[in-house]
């Protein structure tokens, strides 16, 4: 780790001002990606703005038919929230399956979303659920937020404040873990609300999280795993391959995990 300045604002306004003044500064949420990268000297931001002191960024509320989750809310808080468990149990399960207990007690939904790791779980879930990412500047639909690997629609100095997640969907997320890291090697989130069916895939896309349109069309006709029989799997050409899983294997796993997610979302 190289030397850096450390700021710990207590209000969102202070945080915003610090971010505006320090163009090269990094926002620190749970730090699970940023700090190891800095320790390995692969990143050397001149300053960190630690958001853990900004109370207004944490907490979970049900507002109308939406869950509103503060950006600094930890995975453990989402997983353990009675509100989430009642309104959108599949999201609590997703959060409870991120990393390990240490990770879940430090890692935050805002940090995960902002980092947009191609193997992260939240992007698939939020994309499938049609969530909205609220920042200090605007509201961004998940479908426009996750742009590419480790890339988002966030602009310089823009801070995620909360995530708005519509409830009322049948929803489940199934992941196949990388045997070493246990990150999602393939993760599939399936949501059905009325006529809208969304299937979002993480861990596999060469360009990050994506929606599997063919599966959505088939499931919109009938929401059952059988509907996926005969549906063309995502083309391996657009998927990742590494020592753990070829693109072809990932493509196959997307089909398997999607079926299991549909089954779980159907409460079976």
């Amino acid at each position: 780790m190289y030397a850096f300045d450390y700021h710990r604002p207590t209000t969102l306004k202070q945080a915003g001002n610090l971010a505006a003044k320090n163009a090269e500064a990094k926002l620190l949420a749970g730090g699970h990606t940023l700090l190891p990268t800095m320790k390995q000297r692969l990143a050397s931001p001149p300053a960190l703005i630690d958001l853990s002191g900004v109370a207004e960024l944490s907490g979970i509320a049900l507002k109308g038919r939406n869950l509103v989750i503060g950006a600094m809310t930890t995975h453990a808080e989402v997983a353990g929230s009675d509100l989430v468990k009642a309104a959108l149990p599949g999201l609590a399960v997703l959060a409870g399956g991120i990393g390990d207990p240490h990770v879940r007690h430090r890692g935050t939904i805002g940090g995960s979303v902002a980092n947009n790791d191609p193997s992260a779980d939240y992007p698939a879930g939020l994309l499938a659920l049609g969530a909205t990412i609220v920042t200090t500047k605007r509201r961004i639909p998940a479908s426009e937020f996750f742009t590419s690997l480790f890339s988002t629609a966030l602009e310089e100095g823009e801070i995620i404040t909360r995530i708005i997640v519509p409830t009322g969907a049948k929803f489940a997320y199934q992941k196949f873990r990388n045997p070493a890291s246990r990150y999602a090697m393939v993760g599939v989130a399936v949501a059905k609300k009325g006529a809208r069916v969304a299937v979002a895939v993480t861990g596999a896309g060469a360009d990050g999280v994506f929606r599997w349109a063919e599966a959505e069309a088939a499931l919109a006709r009938r929401f059952t795993p059988k509907s996926l029989d005969g549906v063309a799997l995502p083309d391996p050409k657009g998927l990742n391959g590494d020592i753990h899983a070829s693109a072809e294997y990932r493509s196959h796993l997307i089909g398997v995990m999607a079926r299991r997610a549909v089954l779980a979302a159907s409460g079976k």
């Binding site: 045997p179 070493a180 890291s181 990150y183 020592i243 753990h244």
Partner: peptide
């Protein structure tokens, strides 16, 4: 060494 950390070396 591709498997130079626990991210890729499965214990």
């Amino acid at each position: 060494l591709v498997t130079a950390s626990y991210m890729d070396y499965a214990m």
